[in-house]
């Protein structure tokens, strides 16, 4: 991309000669993959719900599948954003909802219950990835190792001297105005 941007720069502006390494933590890469997967699955659920309900023997639940699709897309967008941690936790919660919905289809009368079992198995695997991603992208504030700065007033002559000097200036200004 920067080749194009280089062309647009003025004569005296620096242009990239060699790009340095990109710093992307592995957890962010996982979040990115899960985010795109979520958007893809969400789009499928939103636009082809009948295909999904037929495969799972859950005909009549198309509205529910569409709602789940919207949820997946929103979780995906969040997982791709700087708030990836919230996105991944929302995916973990979504996995729970998906599992609950599929469990309700695991009945003796469902001719496609083998597909449902397979879907449940996949959700289990993905939920593990989601959970791992959510754990690893958490911004841990390192409470135990926090440094405090009680000695950094910024006033070399001390806080009291700074306050006194300010008061003097203010009273002087007031006196000269009156």
């Amino acid at each position: 991309m920067y080749y194009v941007a280089n062309i647009m720069r003025s004569k005296g502006d620096p242009k990239i000669v060699r790009s340095g390494p990109r710093h992307v933590p592995p957890a962010n890469r996982l979040a990115r993959s899960l985010g795109w997967f979520s958007i893809g699955l969400g789009a499928l659920e939103l636009f082809a719900p009948r295909r999904i309900t037929r495969t799972l023997g859950m005909q009549g639940n198309e509205t529910l599948v569409r709602a789940f699709g919207l949820r997946e897309i929103f979780s995906g967008i969040m997982s791709l954003s700087v708030d990836r941690n919230a996105g991944l936790w929302s995916r973990v919660a979504g996995d729970g909802l998906d599992a609950a919905a599929l469990m309700s289809a695991m009945t003796r009368h469902n001719p496609k219950k083998h597909n449902v079992a397979l879907a449940l198995l996949m959700i289990g695997g993905i939920a593990m990835l989601d959970y791992r991603g959510a754990q690893e992208t958490a911004r841990r504030p390192q409470n135990g190792r926090r440094r405090l700065y009680p000695d950094r007033s910024g006033f070399p002559k001390g806080l009291a001297a700074a306050r006194d000097a300010a008061r003097k200036v203010l009273s002087h200004t007031k006196a000269s105005v009156s």
């Binding site: 620096p14 000669v17 060699r18 790009s19 962010n28 700087v82």
Partner: peptide, 10 residues
């Protein structure tokens, strides 16, 4: 987004 690198530039 979230991609700042230390590059060699002119």
């Amino acid at each position: 987004k979230e991609d700042i690198r230390c590059d060699e530039v002119t």
